[in-house]
Amino acid sequence: MKEIEELLFPDDVHYAETHEWARDEEETVVVGIGDYAQDQLGDIVFVELPEIGDTFEKGDQFGTLESVKAVSEIYMPVAGKITAINEALSEEPELVNLEPYNRGWMIEIEPDDPDEIHTLMSGTEYMEMLKGAE
């Protein structure tokens, strides 16, 4: 297990308390799980994602992550409609471990409110939250 200082929390994404990240791509928001969550879960062996066109509220469960040991829920960091899912994860779920912020992305959302993403935490705030939980 990595120390918090060894984990990567890039500042080009926003973080939810439930450990998802969200990246503002103007028209859409791209979502995955952060380095902390993937490190805690261990090897991801399966990712269950929603259908394109599904709509969810902020905080709704949109999928599940299957690690070697357990099944975990993943939650919407902002409300919106699913416009794309990362098909590559069905063949290579380990991308979530290897490149959580890039090739390990999970869903693309058309947000109901483009400003909602700014209610999430910055990388620094998120790291402070994790340290507080230690």
Binding site: M1, K2, D39, Q40, G42, D43, V45, V68, K69, E94, N97
Partner: peptide
């Protein structure tokens, strides 16, 4: 080694190492 540890039978034991449980298996 960076192992993820967990309590097992009263002992703190490695659950997996950074290589991951899949490669270990």
């Amino acid at each position: 080694q960076g192992a993820r540890m967990a309590l097992f039978g009263g002992y703190e034991m490695p659950l997996w190492y950074p290589s991951g449980a899949k490669r270990e298996h």
